[in-house]
Amino acid sequence: MTVQPSRLLIYAILIIFAAFYLMPVYVLLVTGMKGFVEVSLPRMWDLPSGLYFDSFLRAWFGSQAQGFRGLSTNFLNSVKLVVPATLISAMLGSMNGYVLAKWKFRGSEVLFPLLLFGMFIPYQSVLIPLVQTLQKMQLYGSIPGLIFVHVVYGIPITTLIFRNYYATVPTELVEASKIDGASLLGIYRWVMFPISMPGFVVALIWQFTSIWNDFLFGVVVTPNPAVQPVTVTLNNLAGSYIVEWNVQMAGALLAALPTLLVYIFLGRYFMRGLLAGSLKG
């Protein structure tokens, strides 16, 4: 078997691009593993001489002496934020999607794009009233407040994911149950919900990723460093001139870990979420 030169070229291009995408990961990893004596910017691309986890420890625990905050508590804050927010918004999205796909009412075809628009708005256009309203609701500056915000602004995308998913379920299934005398909730419970797992996986992964990765709401809704999610702490770590760059890199890797793991293990569903996000039902 001979290899055609054109095939070789294709592989060469693919590999060059793979190197481009992996380049930052390489720097993240080697920098994170270097000991403090070996980290210097001019040796950025060199391999570490051994395995050290100093940078990770520093990024995780921070340094009292240097006066910067580690990621540990804020990582936990992100977990406390992302788990309930993801679950609640998936549940909401499922109900909304069900109604919009199978129980269309007068105005539902207007309501749907109106909901969807909320997904695209620049959140800057709601920040000022958001802070004031959350304050009146006694939710400002707290993780429950942040959960609430993510649930509300997650409604459009989760609704979209489920509506598109339920649209693929044959309407005859619903009609048949209706004839059998099942109610709207009954049909949801007995017919739709049991087959909703794929929709849930997509919605949960999508919400998990975008809430974990959020920065704007975190920085505005939770100004207190002890309550902030991990992305905000990482940004502060990087914005501070006293923190060495290898600690910043290690911090970036730590903050990226949960979504990376989700991507590695559930990549297939992640893809589906992405494509759902592109409005292709």
Binding site: N213, A256, M271
Partner: peptide
Amino acid sequence: SIYLFPMALSFIVTGVV
């Protein structure tokens, strides 16, 4: 998977790197 994985990251992580 290699081409797509940066999508899973936060813009903050991308920015720092």
